[in-house]
């Protein structure tokens, strides 16, 4: 345990230093996360104002202007905390051979990457805090009164973080078999965006789309913690929400292990 703490601490330290080094790019990257949710907010507040002030979904969930603001702002923060971009990096590394030195280390490269990811979030969150505060101030979201179930959002976010990370990393491993993974990534990101609730609150999706969204892993990666914070999860569904998260996490770890084993075989066969 101490070993792992030391390793992550060392990586966090380096990662933080690197992030500060590239603070300009990092900040831009972080602000990137604003665009999607704000677009969604723009579309939905325009739609709701053209529809007399509020929109009611098929299951009866109602959103006003300020509800949309609350939804998309919280979504923005949660997805910032859980986001991951390793598929891009990984493909580069496989292609230009930078993966090889990492494989020589007596520790799986995913740990260094996860630590870097955490360092990124740590650095950017501190920088973004004032901007988030301003957005909350100007967009006037309607937030529920604080209560204890909202604290459950903390473990939910942590699970979502690891969950999204491991799925993304598994996807990145496709780079072992094909040198061009951009199309697949794009597909995955679109799917993630749609089914995690970036484009619309999942409660507003009609018909079969709503059903797909309910059972997809992406709900556990983003939408579930957001709903917890907004107090929109009925208390009898909280437990099942967590079970879903854990289920998809186990699946993700399994897939990752299989793909890694196969991928390394492939990588060494081609000659690194």
């Amino acid at each position: 345990m101490k070993y792992w703490i030391n390793i992550y601490r060392a990586h966090l330290k380096i990662g933080t230093a690197i992030m500060f080094q590239y603070r300009f790019a990092v900040l831009i990257w972080a602000v990137w996360g604003f665009v999607g949710p704000l677009l969604g907010l723009a579309v939905w507040s325009a739609a709701s104002s053209s529809h007399g002030g509020n929109i009611t979904g098929p299951q009866g969930a109602t959103f006003t202007d300020r509800d949309f603001a609350a939804y998309f702002l919280v979504f923005m923060i949660v997805s910032h905390l859980t986001m991951s971009w390793d598929a891009f990096e990984f493909a580069f590394r496989v292609r230009d051979g930078n993966l090889s030195p990492r494989l020589l280390k007596p520790i799986h490269p995913i740990h260094g990457d996860l630590a870097t990811n955490l360092a990124f979030k740590f650095v950017t969150s501190t920088m973004l805090l004032p901007i988030w505060a301003l957005l909350f101030y100007f967009l006037k979201p309607s937030l529920p009164p604080p209560n204890w179930t909202q604290l459950l959002a903390i473990p939910a976010i942590l699970i979502a973080l690891v969950l999204r990370y491991i799925w993304q990393y598994s996807l990145a491993l496709i780079a072992f078999w094909t040198t061009r993974v951009e199309a697949i990534n794009q597909f995955y990101f679109t799917l993630d965006g749609f089914l995690a609730g970036r484009i619309a609150p999942l409660a507003l999706l009609p018909g079969w789309l709503g059903v797909v969204a309910t059972y997809s892993p992406f709900r556990s990666m983003g939408y579930f913690p957001v709903e917890l914070i907004l107090g929109r999860v009925p208390s009898d569904q909280i437990l099942s929400g967590f079970l879903f998260q854990v289920f998809w996490l186990v699946v993700g770890v399994g897939v990752f292990r299989l793909m890694w084993a196969g991928g390394i075989k492939q990588y060494s066969a081609v000659g690194a």
Binding site: K13, T16, A17, F20, Q21, R23
Partner: peptide, 13 residues
């Protein structure tokens, strides 16, 4: 010029 460590990099901001 940049010194090692997160503190130094923060200052160099």
């Amino acid at each position: 010029e940049r010194e090692a460590g997160a503190g130094a990099s923060f200052r160099s901001l």
